[in-house]
Design a protein around this nucleic acid. Structure first.
Lengths: 212, 212
DNA sequence: AACTTATCCCCCATTTTAGGGGAGATCTAG
DNA sequence: CTAGATCTCCCCTAAAATGGGGGATAAGTT
């Protein structure tokens, strides 16, 4: 019998805790479509073996010795851009989550995920989805939403948003169909309300307070 | 018997297709924790009744007559910031999705979602999650990731990223511990590579090509 | 050897920004 | 109805920032 139909998904695990790693291996082993080709306690050996392991999917922890998982994700994506990466971490703080996604992770589970949840996430990933634990998903969605209590008026917010895209007063004026003088006035008022006196500081405050 | 424990979650439906709306009503009616206090074929009447409906959760379509769902979301969030909003739409294009999330939606389902999926999403929302169909989730996650094939070097990308935050050459130099002259050189090279000759255009290209 | 990258320097003109003044129209809230 | 906020526009001026041109050196890669 010739097996050409549906090749197995090659999985690599990178997780420094031996028990957790073995647990993952066992869980994934129960699923017929996945094969764990290798597992490592650190990114360093995993990166060395990338070209022979040829993983379709990497499950990676973040807090690990030798090399941080975020750095590992970057290097894996650089070497093999098509590899799908799933983070399994205890961290639920936004910086860690966003850094991981920016680095190239497509999914992010917290460690309290149960076996079924893990397998479901793998299936979700392989069909092009982006599985996330609920806290992670809400972090991500909230990152799109701006603060509801802003000192700025709607028009000012609009001007600040264009300013943040690197537009000059002149092009903001064109975009909003108003004169450059009006743009200047808005910006002066914005600076006053945000207690700053230049563009850079205004954008730092805007970023911090989620005004745009 | 005094009922103080676990008040029902008040749900409002806004969906112009009568069949779909009735379907949702029926599905949600099967769940003991939710009560559909009202349902509307348009945002306009829904907004008028907001203060008496007092919804904890609004399920809303996007393409509707009289007022677009995005605008409806904005107004609902403005009037009742704590209301949780779930979009159920056929649209899977990124602009629509991001506009909805920016406007204040916490979840986004496509219309092929089955009844169990809908109820699961509601539960997820009420415990602070952000349920999304898998295509939507992957759109959202991908929005964090930058293009893998950039003409820019790592350092140049770094400089461009700081430029995009509104930093001046001087503060970029400080941030990267290099001289301002070096920053200028990097920026000149960036402009050449991106075929532009000013900051605004560079950032437009960067945005379009996902370089930062 | 040629190329890319990252770093730094000079000169110079133009563009952009910021701060000061004021003013009229509209709208909202007290 | 009045006071405040918002949005619009104008004048003047000076400082800050940008961009374009010319280099150069050192490290690293192909």
């Amino acid at each position: 019998m010739i097996q050409t139909y549906k090749p197995l998904t090659r999985v690599v695990l990178i997780e420094d805790n031996n028990d957790v790693r073995e647990g993952f291996k066992e869980i994934i082993g129960t699923h017929a479509e996945y094969v764990v080709v290798n597992d490592y306690p650190s990114c360093v050996p995993a990166l060395k073996k990338l070209s022979s392991d040829k993983p379709d999917l990497v499950i990676i922890d973040l807090e690990m010795p030798e090399m941080h998982g975020i750095e590992g994700i970057k290097r894996i994506k650089k070497a093999r851009p098509k590899t799908v990466i799933l983070v399994v971490s205890v961290h639920e703080d936004s910086k860690m989550v966003f850094d991981a996604l920016v680095a190239g992770a497509m999914g992010y589970l917290t460690k309290d995920t149960d076996p079924e949840g893990l397998l479901k996430a793998l299936d979700e990933l392989m069909k092009g989805g982006a599985p996330m634990s609920s806290k992670i998903a809400s972090l991500v969605v909230k990152s799109f939403q701006r603060s509801q209590d802003t000192p700025l008026s709607e028009r000012e917010t609009e001007v600040l948003a264009l300013l943040s895209k690197g537009k000059t007063y002149h092009s903001i004026a064109d975009d909003l169909f108003i004169s450059m003088e009006t743009v200047k006035t808005h910006i002066r008022n914005i600076y006053q309300k945000l207690h700053v006196n230049n563009k850079t500081d205004a954008l730092i405050v805007a970023e911090k307070d989620n005004l745009i």
